[in-house]
Design a protein around this nucleic acid. Structure first.
Lengths: 341, 341
DNA sequence: CTTCCTTTGCAAAACGTTTTGGGTTGGTGT
DNA sequence: ACACCAACCCAAAACGTTTTGCAAAGGAAG
């Protein structure tokens, strides 16, 4: 490794003091250095390939320009990747970099990983969950800028961002109503999580808003995976006056519904329309026909979270906010007009 | 923020000098501090909740304890998550932390992101790709510990780790042979990448090793996504003496094969056995029946890469190595004995 | 009692920046 | 010619560690 070029080398090469170099490079507003000199210094620095040592400047300024991102899981779905990517892009735009750490469900491990982040003097941490849920913030994050990503907590003083579950469901169901469906079923999740309740509310809202009466037999509940979706869909679609369209809790459930439809000899979308939630491309694109679904805005949530935390860091004092981001409809081929009865 | 407790506070509280504290905490071998004192200091430090400032120690030691991980994409599949997770786990075990950065295909962006990593004085960088491919290492990484993850390059001086494609295919095909198949088809990828060639070689090896003659009509090639898999599988399975088992380039291709089989009224695995490669749980678990497949060892590759790079950092000079990691068979339900002819 | 180790602890320098309080230069008003 | 002021630049301190070179204390040998 050729000895790294530091600010002193630049100073020497430019024939000025290190102070002047520092001012020339960083502090654009001050008039402590003549514009001409500044220009010169910048040029010399560039030619020498100077890059500041952030350990040193971080130490001096009490600001590392590093953000921590702690997430529970990262490997099951591509969601985590999208959140991380969003966070990184936003951080990059503002000169920061993010340190990702994940702890599984092990709170002891989480504790020590947060401690590592703090040893590296992160300026703030984004505390992320893989799916929308309520959390309790670890003690040791108190007193440090923090925002929740895909999670909420009851402390109104801390900012958070989650998908707007109600809106997601409304969007999905309205895509069905728009093409003429009135007998719309829903396959919901059994778990007691925000998505379950929010998506049901959105389902109900959409029907009511369009004056459609809800048939209670058309609501079924099951485990939110493909097998669960298959079984509940089989039940639902075997009913005497089965729905002509299905709003599924997730894309995986929707995949189960595809299997059920196929097993019953129903064609999609000619005999039955299906919409999901998640926009897992791996599934939605692979199904045949492609699955129309609403996307959870993981990328955007990641961006939102770090922009918010950087705002908090750069000028503190703004009241916390709890954001819910909209979920856009992604149309593929699984929605069509209801069959003539 | 209560003023952070530093080494001086510990020293004062323990009634010794900062030197002594530093020796007591770090340097376990030296006899510069009496065991008793060491014990005392450690206790005081713990009680005060002391945590070292790594910016400061990094600056002093010229070692940040940070590893960079640059990857091309992160959001498409869960693969990236698994690699990152493996890298983090390994780093954590050895007191390091990893900074993830991803650049898409934009080399200009990549350039600047690597520069960021270097400004943060990363001790080494893992250069990762989402799927096994040849790469050219960016200029600016020269002279810094580097290992390739899921990628190879022609410079034999740098270490790399990739899946053993040949072995993966052999494992998959032998799972078919083991239960009695002899008419085995393969749906390969069109792209000119290592996986394409390696998996074909493995396919051929396995057949030859078991004295099975290969029928050239049973090799088909198509775009390696679900639609491609569906179409090529339709061709293959419509042949007069169709194979009784299919080795698919990937799980997505296998999903297409499922769709083709269903369309042709073939049951899996009674009429046709199918095996894939990737172990994308999102797909393999969701198919019905579950897809038997070989797993690409992303997690293990991530671990391998950072262990290797930390070895290089901690005692340099060991010759580089190019590792190929084995791919275990994951059995679900898509393989059965061939139908009685 | 002196000399010479050994053991233990301390003060200070160094890492690469940023920033404060002065200092130097050269020009302007009287 | 004198004081004064702007404009520019510099030396030095500080951030929190680690480590080096010394010094003090205590014990053993002569």
């Amino acid at each position: 490794m050729t000895t790294r070029v530091g600010i002193r080398e630049v100073a020497r090469a430019a024939g000025v003091s290190v102070t002047t170099v520092s001012h020339a490079l960083n502090d654009a507003t001050s008039f402590r250095v003549k514009a001409e000199t500044r220009q010169h210094v910048r040029e010399v620095a560039r030619n020498l390939g100077y890059a500041p040592n952030r350990l040193a400047s971080g130490l001096r300024n009490q600001r590392s320009q590093i953000l921590g991102l702690v997430s529970d899981e990262i490997t099951t779905t591509p969601f985590a990747g999208a959140m991380i990517r969003g966070a990184q892009d936003a951080a990059y735009e503002r000169g920061y970099v993010v340190m990702v750490v994940n702890s599984g469900l092990d709170t002891e491990l989480e504790h020590r990983e947060i401690s590592m982040l703090q040893q590296h003097q992160v300026d703030g941490v984004v505390y992320a969950r893989l799916y929308h849920q309520g959390v309790q913030l670890p003690q040791e994050l108190a007193g440090m800028p923090t925002v929740l990503l895909d999670a909420v907590t009851d402390d109104a003083a801390i900012s958070s961002v989650v998908p707007d579950e109600v809106n997601a469901a409304e969007t999905a169901v309205e895509a069905l109503i728009r093409v003429g469906h009135t007998r719309i079923g829903m396959i919901n999740n059994v778990d007691d999580i925000p998505a379950t309740h929010g998506r049901f509310d959105g389902f109900r809202n959409a029907l009511r808003r369009h004056g459609i009466e809800r048939d209670p037999r058309h609501l079924v509940i099951g485990v939110a995976d493909t097998a669960g979706g298959r079984e509940t869909a089989l039940d639902l679609l075997s009913q005497p006056d089965r729905p002509t369209a299905l709003f599924c809790f997730s894309d995986r459930v929707a995949m189960g519904a595809y299997q059920a439809a196929t097993a019953l000899g129903l064609r999609i979308p000619e005999d039955i329309s299906i919409v999901g939630v998640d926009n897992l491309e791996l599934i939605a694109d692979a199904l045949w026909p492609g699955l129309t679904t609403v996307a959870l805005p993981h990328y955007e949530m990641g961006r939102w979270a770090v922009h918010r935390i950087l705002d908090d860091i750069e000028n503190p004092g703004r009241p916390a906010e709890q954001a819910r981001l909209a979920c856009p409809l992604i149309e593929r081929g699984s929605v069509g007009p209801p069959p003539p009865s």
